[in-house]
Design a protein around this nucleic acid. Sequence first.
DNA 1: CGATAAATGGATAAATTTGTCGATAAATGA
DNA 2: TCATTTATCGACAAATTTATCCATTTATCG
Lengths: 163, 163
Amino acid sequence: MQMSNTVEYALRAVVWLADHTEKSHTSAEIAEATRMPASYLSKVLKSLSHEGIVSGQRGVHGGFTLARDPEGLSILEVVNAVEPVQRIRACPLGFESHGKNLCNLHRALDDVMIEIERAFASHTIGEMLTRPNRVKPLCGVLVNGKPPRQDLPANTGIRRSHT
Amino acid sequence: MQMSNTVEYALRAVVWLADHTEKSHTSAEIAEATRMPASYLSKVLKSLSHEGIVSGQRGVHGGFTLARDPEGLSILEVVNAVEPVQRIRACPLGFESHGKNLCNLHRALDDVMIEIERAFASHTIGEMLTRPNRVKPLCGVLVNGKPPRQDLPANTGIRRSHT
DNA sequence: CGATAAATGGATAAATTTGTCGATAAATGA
DNA sequence: TCATTTATCGACAAATTTATCCATTTATCG
């Protein structure tokens, strides 16, 4: 059970946009800054745009901007835009009965999904930027087991950006 | 964000075994009873066996039995046997610093993972069988959007088995 | 011991997710 | 209006997950 790549990408992009509101940024620029595949990011941004979380503007000085107040934007909303949290509303076997009554197992599993929703809902994007944190922006592990696409000069400044 | 099929299968099998302890059951028998792909179930049972949750016995009257006391067996243990809950221990970008210090975003995401672990750990397999529940055993929806492989005579008895 | 039943392990195939690419549409500036 | 920039859309490719199949091992029965 693992956080998906898509969710990670979406959140990195949104947090970064929230931290760079001066102007709009092209998807290539965001991909560069947050170190993720540019072409896949396009797709992710499309979903986010579709849900009104970012807004994309075409043309010469276009790009993406955050369309929502970071303080009022929960992580859950971002997650749901790209990969909705799926509640268990009926037992996952194919029979025509019981309606919404779940057996104990699926009741328990749905409880887990509820907890996941609650946990995602309890954090805002704004919080990511305003909460003090001395961690330097880029730390050292792999994306899904693979090394990142390039190396960066070590950044020693204390910032509060996403990693 | 969704509960994986593999997890669902593993739990269905374990709960069913916990409810049928009279003798051992072959993987084909379990697959039939719990309506899941027999050959894939083999693999799942292999993992469960490897983790000591079920024990497999080869040969003529072999099969699988639950190797643990259902009351002491948490859902988390079953989940971890087939698809471990992955905590976020370092920021998922590939740089050589920061150790275990996470930025606010990954701190929040890891908090979600902790909640997931907690939620899974808070239920036991035994609970699935002993808690009263009037839901009839097989209720009506699809496995991953697909209809089940066969139909069953409607079961009208009130049981407490997994669905 | 020989035949059979069943798990175990690993190779392969199908399906889904993740990621890339190119064409099209909209906006801007000249 | 034309060239350029950039999002949007959809087809395609790669990788991963899910599922199947077969060969091997271990056990039981006669």
